[in-house]
């Protein structure tokens, strides 16, 4: 029983609750760093490391951190781990640091990490939290890798730098191609989900950790009682 549920903690992030394709979190790095498959892996691994460490520490401190300052406390802890990962990458894999550029420190505002801290790690014991972080991280990496392979193959004709097809459709590695490929992947995920009779995402807000804050005001302001779609979101 126990092993089975641990297994579930790990696998749910990969397929059922994939943070990118099902919850639509972390869209900024998903679009920005997927110009090549190797960049996608670098970003995915860095984010996974941060996610596991921050989940572990937040879960450890979940009874100590006062509720009032919990978000600033989470952000501080996450920022600390992001900086540590950044320094390690700079020291041991400088080429990855150069190609990820600003998106490495920006892991700090990646909503997957704050989202998991708020929704999972703050309520669960340490070990499942680490597994949850690992699963979500692997799911994030897998989605990024998928985007990266498609964009690199179509855009430069290569995968991991190995020439596979002779044509290059440049637009795929430019920003418009990023939006397009991401849109198509979500369409496929939606199609599969609706076949399985599951809920389909139609806004980036559903999985957003700040959505509660938004919902209250957005509904007052926009009179959108019935529409979950127009919930102002944010966090990325």
């Amino acid at each position: 029983m126990a092993t089975k549920s641990y297994m579930q903690e790990f696998t749910k992030g990969i397929i059922k609750e994939n943070p990118v394709l099902c919850l639509v979190l972390g869209t900024c790095p998903t679009l920005a760093v997927t110009t090549s498959a190797s960049n996608a892996i670098g970003m995915g691994v860095a984010a996974t490391a941060v996610l596991m460490c921050s989940n572990a520490v937040i879960s450890m401190l979940r009874k100590v951190i006062p509720d009032k300052v919990r978000i600033p406390a989470y952000i501080t802890i996450i920022a600390g781990f992001v900086t540590i990962v950044q320094m390690i990458v700079k020291a041991f894999a400088p080429t990855i640091n150069d190609s990820l550029g600003i998106f490495l420190p920006l892991i700090v505002v990646n909503c997957i990490i704050l989202g998991r801290a708020e929704m999972y790690a703050s309520k669960n014991p340490v070990f499942p939290s680490i597994l949850d972080g690992l699963g979500m991280g692997v799911g994030f990496t897998a989605a990024l890798l998928c985007m990266g392979i498609i964009r690199e193959l179509l855009g430069s004709g290569t995968v991991f730098g190995v020439q596979l097809i002779p044509v290059q459709i440049l637009i795929f590695i430019l920003p418009p191609g990023g939006f397009f490929v991401f849109g198509m992947l979500i369409a496929i995920a939606n199609k599969l989900n609706s076949k399985a009779g599951k809920k389909v995402v139609d806004s980036p807000c559903q999985g957003c950790p700040m959505s509660k804050t938004c919902k209250s005001f957005a509904c007052e302001k926009e009179n959108c009682e019935n529409s979950d779609k127009e919930v102002a979101p944010d966090v990325s």
Binding site: P175, F180, F182, N190, V200, D202
Partner: peptide, 22 residues
Amino acid sequence: PKSLKGLPITLVAASLVALSFL
């Protein structure tokens, strides 16, 4: 088309807007 409804078509539209900025 049904499976493009919602977020996917929004992203395709974003792609076209980004194209114009190129």
